[in-house]
Design a protein around this nucleic acid. Structure first.
Lengths: 339, 339
DNA sequence: TTGTAAGCGTTATCAT
DNA sequence: ATGATAACGCTTACAA
């Protein structure tokens, strides 16, 4: 059986309140007493009972990471591992715990929302990559649950951290333009996601800035997965592009495969740039010229914003923070710049 | 402010206990009353306060997934995403919550153990892939915390689920032997991990079963990461192998890269087989002939074993379960069987 | 079948 | 600076 405050108190010859003060670093304890109590705590390995504590403090020291239903199929994308790594690191540094929830339960999104978010288990949540119209967001807002979004959102009331998708996509496309390409296609992410829309915007901006036409037969919607890349290539080839900006590395892997199958050389026949700079970008041949996004930072920043939100709840005058992290182009083999 | 049992009771015109009984499906409630109470609960969106509940039940409905310090560097390996996906799915189905802990905090492994495991936050834990001598295991045993290991362990008291690493490695190696190779090298995982030892054992068994010598110059220790694969190739090439069994897909990606850099063709000059069948296995060129392990099952099974353990604690006579899931060889391009 | 009341291990308020 | 004591919201004997 685990020890309680009461027992530590008895062992140290003080009252329960004093032990509580010691544990919580209350300055109102005589030094000699504090030493004595700490010694007993150390010797016994006493650890406060989390549930008892949070019943009174209304804090659990747990934050949730939620993968909304709409993106659970992407969970095994390395992007999420990297994001989780950043988040857990930041949690550890702040002595917070992390609860992971995928909202794809058979019980249904609604039930799981109740179970996870209304049971007072979480001090706040990080929503990893929602679609623009995810019903989760208004609900969190309505229930006044502190939350931070990874990826931007239109509602003015939400705090978020995003990467600069527009600039990144523009760089990747301009790089192809600089290399002399005129017929540049793009494989987008699912248009329900703002990141996909933003990357498409960046692509268009680049074309327009250089007087190139935006041709809808050169635009194919993908799904951020490998299969989507493969399918997109089949739709794109008839328009004979000489280069493709693929909106994610994972899709680029599919594009590479499909192109190989069609007997096209990369970058010889068709040049490729993509987005993310996941480990797979250097695993394939040729290695991908791609836009690096600071995924670890994204996670750490989300935690930081959330803890801010938890510790000083927004008043009427405060406006939600919106952070956008920079991206950079990493040039490798797939674009043909290095031969 | 969230509602309490008391308020629901008042609204439904019954006592707090009755509401509690309804919420907990106690049969001793008149049907008419049960209906009425449920209706109020539904209308108000009442959700029991988790902390209050677990303070008395001594259960949190949370299980932990722990990545021990020794393997945190491998966390972004897709293996863990896939494992986590299986675990979360099983958790959702059983209405359990999942807390994720990486034991690589600056506070130190010891402190984090105290904080995470001794605070009564977790009903039990899944330890994902420990080294054979991880100090975590004896501690969990000493503190009688229900836990399941992913990956086998020598201590008779631990419950685990593993994949058949030995057979898998044997198949992958025998496949190369069948293709006529005589000088077959291997890149192992870190020898501190039992899975790495087992895969090496399978490799040796295959050689011995076919009267081939085990030559230590054909064995190079890796680290289950890409860099380890690259480094191993440099050590192996002087022994002029015609084939290599690489103990993980991620390392195989490194091996492929290094070989390409050395101007060796795969599978023409050197044939490759590996282990895991992660998505990356089909992303690289040539696609990897590799041993598939049922990672999703591994996760689901771990949860199942853990819930068993939680719900009926082992008595003196019961012996810990040890499950070993089968593996299968998936033949693709890297072994040269299909040209 | 239902209600009353004790108690889970903390923190926080109030005396001293 | 320290100690009683009353919550926190729930489950669970025990009584009725």
């Amino acid at each position: 059986m685990a020890l309680t405050l009461e027992q530590i108190a008895k062992l140290a010859g003080v009252s329960r309140s004093t032990v509580s003060r010691v544990v919580n670093d209350d300055p109102n304890v005589r030094d000699e007493v504090r030493q004595r109590v700490w010694r007993v705590i150390r010797e016994t390995g006493y650890q406060p009972h989390a549930a008892a504590r949070s019943l009174v403090t209304r804090r659990t020291q747990i934050i949730g990471v939620i993968i909304p239903e709409s993106v659970t199929t992407l969970f095994t994308d390395p992007f999420f591992s990297l994001l989780l790594a950043g988040i857990t690191a930041a949690c550890n540094e702040n002595r917070y715990h992390l609860m992971l929830s995928l909202f794809n339960s058979p019980e249904g999104s609604d039930a799981i929302y109740q179970r996870v978010l209304r049971s007072a288990y979480l001090d706040g949540v990080i929503v990893a990559s929602a679609t623009g119209d995810d019903p989760l967001i208004p609900r969190l807002l309505r229930d006044s649950i502190p939350f931070v979004l990874v990826g931007r959102h239109l509602d003015k009331r939400v705090t978020y951290v995003d990467v600069d998708n527009v600039s990144g996509a523009r760089m990747a496309t301009e790089h192809l333009i600089r290399l002399g390409h005129k017929r540049i296609a793009t494989v987008t992410g699912p248009m329900s996601m703002l990141s996909a829309q933003d990357r498409l915007t960046g692509y268009k901006q680049a074309l327009e800035a250089h007087g190139l036409p935006v041709d809808s037969s050169l635009i194919a919607e993908g799904d951020y997965r490998e299969g989507g890349g493969i399918a997109a290539v089949r739709r794109l080839l008839p328009a004979s592009p000489t280069a493709i900006f693929v909106a994610s590395d994972v899709m680029a892997v599919g594009v590479l495969k499909a192109l190989r199958q069609e007997g096209r050389e990369v970058p010889g026949d068709i040049a490729i740039t993509s987005f993310d700079d996941l480990p797979v970008a250097t695993a394939v041949q040729p290695a991908l010229t791609t836009v690096r996004q600071p995924i670890d930072d994204l996670g750490r920043t989300a935690v930081q914003l959330l803890l801010d939100l938890i510790h000083r709840p927004p008043d009427a005058t405060s406006v939600p923070q919106r952070l956008v992290l920079p991206t950079e182009l990493v040039v490798r083999g797939s674009c043909g710049a290095r031969r």
